[in-house]
Amino acid sequence: MEKTILDVRNLRIRYGGSPVEAVRGVSFTLGRERLGIVGESGSGKSTVGRAMLRLLPGATITADMLRFEETDLLALSEKEMLKVRGRRMSMILQDPKFSLNPIRRVGDQVAETYLRHFQCSRREAHDKAVAMLEAVKIRDPERVFRQYPHEISGGMGQRVMIAMMLLADPDLVIADEPTSALDVTVRLQVLNILDGLVRDRGIGLIMISHDLNLVRNFCDRVLIMYAGKVVETLKASDLDHAQHPYTQGLLAAQPRIGGTRQPLAVLDRKPEWLEESL
């Protein structure tokens, strides 16, 4: 971890009209590594990811520091933010069915990233997009380029999303539940492709997921979030030696292959977890 890509200190987010904060003082740094953020639904993990890209209209974001490389994200105007989004930092969303435009050809949507951020001809953008589709292991990329989102499978759609988000060669990719809509067999393929590209290009990756197995296998470090706070930070390989009762509870609640088939441990949520911080 030689260079810090992202430095977040005391991030607080409050949605418009809400009396409580959705994210309450989250701090972390990210280098050229793969960071997992796990937690249950409603723990604020996706909100943190979206705040990095300032994709939260109507929400109040405050932080002591929200620095992305040399840029202070909170100080940027919306116009300047457009140059960051998709170019230097991008986000892979959960479900390709809802995140691709249904009435535009897949390839045009991928090429748009390149056309928007670089001075180039349509031909050049097309070639770049096809090469990128090939890099995410889509067979016959020229044909897929001309297809519409409803003509491709979910696994392929998610690979198209990855291609779209990596095309501009960003420094940071935020993947929000990138594979939870996919079957197990396809899930592994997609994750391996994402993993390979992120490693080869030295991209920082934030993987937001509720799936402990996924972060264990595909991340270097893991933040565990509960009710808008980070309760524990661990190396992914040390996940089984988690100290916090919430993390231990999540791990114990998971059925495992070859397990004992005894009733699973149920989380006993302690009120003090809401208050303590790291």
């Binding site: 249950e40 609640a253 009733p263 699973l264 149920v266 989380l267």
Partner: peptide, 15 residues
């Protein structure tokens, strides 16, 4: 459902 909630439902079904 989340894993923690899944555990509750699976236990219920088993019981």
């Amino acid at each position: 459902l989340d894993v923690s909630v899944q555990a509750e439902i699976l236990n219920l079904l088993q019981r």
